[in-house]
Amino acid sequence: MATSAQPHDDNLNAAPMLGDHLAMDLLNTEARNDDKTVEYWHSDADVLRWLAQHNIFPVAGSSAFAKGELLLQAKALRTLARQLIGAFKAGKSEDISGLNTYLHTYHSALHVERDKEGKPLLRRIASGTTIASLLGPVAEAVALLLVEANIDLVKQCEHPDCILWFYDRTKAHKRRWCSMALCGNRYKAAQFRKRSNG
């Protein structure tokens, strides 16, 4: 891959949420477009927006963090997750102590509340410092993927120009593309052009 680039299209300003698993969406905050790495996180605000898309918000009354600290730690967690998930997919053993560091600083408690229909709903809520409470659920998703996921369902898009990941929850487990509308159609168009020119 070449140099890092900002997305050139307004539709690309937000990281794609195509992974069907929080850990996969974490990896997808860095993508590729025209052989250039596309970084979706450039500031703490970018990370906060992405977390909010996943219903993860700062704990009320928590202390603020130093400028750039959330961005730095979120990118470090993403790098660690990429290593661990890549090793998991390749059937290799990797040092998990870095992931435990994130998990051990994430303090949470179980909380019962009512859903829209009035039925009891059990949730885990953060009760620690701001960054730990924000990144804890993401680290937990990575850990749960490594412990509970079916390795065959952790996939990377088959399009040669795409690096996005997803968890294949389709009934037949035959998903090949991060998105049929994006890479699936690009692939089909390329195959059509090959046949037409061949």
Rank of each mutant, 00 (worst) to 15 (best):
K155H: 05
V138W: 11
L77W: 02
R82L: 09
E140V: 01
L144M: 10
L153D: 08
R78V: 06
V154E: 05
S127F: 03
L72V: 08
H104W: 09
L135N: 07
P120Q: 01
F57C: 04
K75Q: 13
I125F: 03
R82P: 04
H104E: 11
L121G: 09
V59G: 10
H54K: 12
E113H: 11
A60Y: 10
A132D: 15
D152N: 13
D161W: 02
L99S: 09
I163H: 04
E148F: 10
V147C: 06
V142T: 02
H107A: 09
D115F: 02
I96Q: 15
T130I: 11
R82F: 09
T105K: 14
L145D: 00
S97C: 07
V112D: 03
F57S: 11
I163T: 15
K75I: 00
T79C: 12
D95R: 07
G86C: 01
E94F: 10
Y102A: 00
S63D: 14
F57N: 05
K92R: 13
L71P: 02
P58M: 12
Q156F: 03
H159C: 00
L71T: 01
L134K: 05
G61H: 06
R124M: 05
L145N: 00
A60W: 04
S62F: 04
I96P: 02
G91L: 04
S62A: 13
G136K: 02
A90G: 07
L80W: 00
K89F: 01
R124E: 06
K89G: 10
R114E: 12
T130Q: 15
A76M: 08
F65H: 14
G136H: 04
V138Q: 02
A64S: 10
Y106T: 03
L134G: 07
P58Q: 13
L146Y: 02
I85A: 01
L144W: 03
A143R: 05
H159T: 05
S62P: 13
L103D: 02
C162P: 03
T129A: 14
L121H: 05
P58S: 12
S127V: 14
E113L: 07
T129P: 15
D95W: 01
L71W: 03
Y106F: 14
G86Q: 00
H54Q: 14
R82A: 14
L71K: 09
I56N: 06
V147K: 11
E113Q: 12
